[in-house]
Computed example of a mutant assay.
Amino acid sequence: MSLTAWLRRLVPERAPGPEPSASPGAWMDLLPAGLEPVGAALLPGEDGSRLSVSAGLRVATAAEMAVGYEAGAVLPREPWRPMTRAERDRVLCTDPDPARDVAVVRLPPGSLARIRACGEPVEVLSDLRSVCRLDGSLDVLGAGSNPPGRQTVTIAPETGRSIGMHLDSWDNLPLEARGLSSNRICVNIGRESRFFLFVPVSLMDMPALLAERLGPEEPPADTPLYRLFMAMFPEIPVLRCRVDPGEAYVAPTECLVHDGSSLGQTGLDEQFTVRGFITALPR
Rank of each mutant, 00 (worst) to 15 (best):
T4M: 01
R8C: 03
R8F: 08
L10G: 10
R14L: 15
R14N: 01
G17V: 11
G17E: 07
P18H: 05
P18N: 02
E19H: 02
A22P: 04
S23A: 15
G25Q: 11
W27Y: 01
W27M: 05
L31C: 10
L31Y: 01
P32A: 01
A33S: 14
L35S: 07
P37M: 06
A40I: 12
P44H: 01
G45L: 02
E46D: 07
D47K: 14
G48H: 11
R50Q: 02
R50A: 00
S52T: 15
V53G: 05
L57F: 12
R58I: 10
R58M: 09
R58C: 07
A60P: 06
A62Q: 00
M65T: 12
V67E: 05
V67Q: 05
G68L: 09
E70T: 05
G72S: 03
A73H: 03
V74W: 03
V74F: 05
L75R: 00
E78Y: 14
W80Y: 14
R81C: 11
P82F: 11
P82W: 01
A86H: 02
R88L: 02
R90W: 00
R90N: 08
V91L: 06
L92V: 13
V105D: 13
V105M: 12
R106E: 14
P109Y: 11
S111F: 05
A113D: 12
R116V: 06
R116S: 10
E120T: 05
V122W: 12
L125Y: 01
L128W: 00
V131N: 13
R133Q: 13
R133H: 15
G136V: 00
L138W: 10
D139W: 12
L141R: 14
G144C: 02
S145Y: 07
S145A: 12
N146Y: 06
G149I: 07
R150V: 08
Q151M: 14
V153P: 08
A156K: 02
P157T: 13
E158R: 11
T159P: 04
T159K: 07
G160E: 07
R161T: 09
G164Y: 06
M165H: 08
M165S: 05
M165D: 04
D168N: 08
W170R: 12
L173W: 14
R178L: 09
S182A: 14
S182P: 06
R184V: 15
R184Y: 00
C186G: 09
N188G: 02
I189E: 06
G190Y: 00
F195S: 06
P200H: 13
V201A: 04
S202W: 13
M206W: 00
A208W: 13
L214N: 06
P219F: 06
P220N: 07
L225Q: 09
R227Q: 04
M230Q: 13
A231E: 10
P237L: 07
V238W: 13
C241S: 09
R242K: 15
D244I: 07
P245L: 03
T253L: 12
T253A: 12
C255P: 05
L256E: 07
D259V: 09
G260A: 08
Q265H: 05
G267E: 12
D269P: 01
T273M: 08
V274H: 03
R275D: 15
I278S: 02
L281V: 04
P282V: 08
